[in-house]
Amino acid sequence: MSARRHDGVWPWIFMTPILVPLAIFFLWPLLRTLYYSFTTWSFFGEVRWTGLDNYERLLSDPDFTLALGNTAIYTLIVMLNVPIAVYLAALMNRPGLRLRALYRALYFLPVVTMPVAVAIVWRMLYSGDFGLINAFLGLFGIQGPYWLSTPGVSLVAVAIVGIWLSLGFNIIVFSAGLNGIPPELYEAAAIDGATPWRQFRSITLPLLTPTLFFVTVLTLIGGFQVFDLIFVMLGTGPNAERSQTLVYFFYSEGFLHNDKGYATAIGIVIIALIALLTALQFRLQRRWVHYA
């Protein structure tokens, strides 16, 4: 190992092509957004400095509390994605399993669909009177709810679509992680007479924790940013207001109420919340993530 603390000019040759566009198209817009969050600003350009007003208003706005709660619930449900994906990936990854490519493709299809088509098809599936889902539940004598218009249920319904959309992506990330585990470990364990469940617990799971961490971080960020899906699934229905999430709240204040200053304050708070949770995850990872 060399003792130099810095690598001289080389890192900057590598970093400049990134830092220049980053500064122009991300950092500068972000700083301006930060500034706008301390102002009253409609989109016609007149900006008036109002200090912390937007943030104070946010703290006492019941819509913010509602959106925060909905976002938390949605994110928690979508997190179910992680164990389901691990389980399915582990099944797919069994040595000697045939049709693996087919299975991967089946689970991956939703990842590449156009969001508008997703909404059309799922709204039909969820129909209370005529939907396939309730028809299926009916076979077992269960009376399904009006999925998209029953308070409490509609958020779950959207979260199910959220899981459906991203499951394939996570399965592929996990499959990759599983491929990285040396097969000798399993062979040795089998010789010692470990059951498949025991092998999963003491070999697969620990060695998969770095991947689990990565996926958990990304899923949480994705959950906190949910907007499009809520918008297309519940847009005009009776539950649009009750089910609004943080980014939906931001959009509606900024683009429907034309209160861009307040909306940017909401946006800054969303970033701060996600940053906080991500930092927390990075701290906690030392307790449960095993790096080889």
Binding site: R4, R5, H6, D7, W10, P11, W12, F14, M15, L19, L22, F25, F26, L27, W28, P29, L30, R32, T33, F43, L218, I221, Q225, F227, V247, F250, Y251, G254, F255, K260, T264, G267, I270, I271, I274, A275, T278
Partner: peptide, 29 residues
Amino acid sequence: RMRFYAKGPLFALVLTMLMVPGTLLLIPQ
């Protein structure tokens, strides 16, 4: 692999990009 000034903060900045909701920067961009 490289060592350079402000590497940690710069990486944090890159991670921040992941956290920004898409429409937030629409107008300034």
